[in-house]
Write a protein that binds this DNA or RNA. Structure first.
Lengths: 132, 132
DNA sequence: CATACATATGCATATATGTACATGTGAACA
DNA sequence: TGTTCACATGTACATATATGCATATGTATG
């Protein structure tokens, strides 16, 4: 017979019972809302692409225009523009127009901080890049 | 005629010249290696999915087994296992076996830190969840 | 040793997403 | 006002990936 019959059962998971109902209740109470975590995932997702990360790393060093970025990163201009659009919509970068040229930069120091924390995780063996 | 003819030209970007060759040189010198940034992107990518993030948020509160997770998050057991496998390969979570049950937890405090930094970025309006 | 159960894995598929190509937009300048 | 050039956008497509289903693995137990 089941050890704990008083918890929500889902025959797709554990056949007869959930194993630690107390733990589940505790975690459920403290777990951030699903919608909040979804929003957070969308944020992290933007850092989860090599191209975008190279753009962000470059912008963390200096303000750059689209042309500079595409030369620097050896990318087609439309590809850079598309990524910048995504990053701008997410308020990760901001744009500043000067004549025909548009300069992009990180919106705030917080973005730089996120990059730094990730770099640190890759391990001290990489000797954290001074750029970030 | 071009203002600066001494810089690497890529007709796909700026037709006649790159705009700020000095800035490009400076950034190029400080930019982390492409491979390092690719590795970093792979790391962030794992946080860029709502499901995985819910798993990580749950594990940041308590050690849990697969069955608990699938009940808690209302997911099929194989889906949870698949994500846990990915997270384990990336050393973001670790597993501990106890009989038939396998308990998962975050590998270290650094992961919790990454989650916290992301939460903070979502803005103070969310009143940073005490769970993280 | 056979059964039960928690978890892992293989495979198929639907969806998401990054990039290329072509074209549109907008500002400066003659 | 027409041209040039930096940048943006629309569409198409190829790839990556998250999930569901079926099934395998491994451990305890009778």
């Amino acid at each position: 017979m089941p050890k704990t019959s008083s918890c929500e059962n889902d025959p797709d998971n554990c056949l007869t019972q959930c194993i630690h109902p107390a733990a589940i209740r505790a975690v459920r109470a403290a777990l951030p809302a699903r919608s909040l975590l979804a929003e957070l995932a969308e944020f992290y997702k933007l850092f989860g692409d090599g191209t975008r990360l190279r753009i962000l790393a470059a912008l963390s060093i200096a303000e750059l225009c689209v042309c500079d970025l595409s030369t620097l990163l050896d990318m087609k201009q439309p590809a850079v523009s598309h990524q910048l659009r995504t990053l701008k919509q997410a308020r990760i970068v901001k744009a500043r127009r000067e004549g025909k040229v548009i300069y992009y930069s990180l919106t705030d120091e917080h973005i730089r901080h996120v990059l730094r924390v990730g770099m640190e995780h890759l391990g001290e063996q990489y000797e954290t890049t001074e750029a970030l």
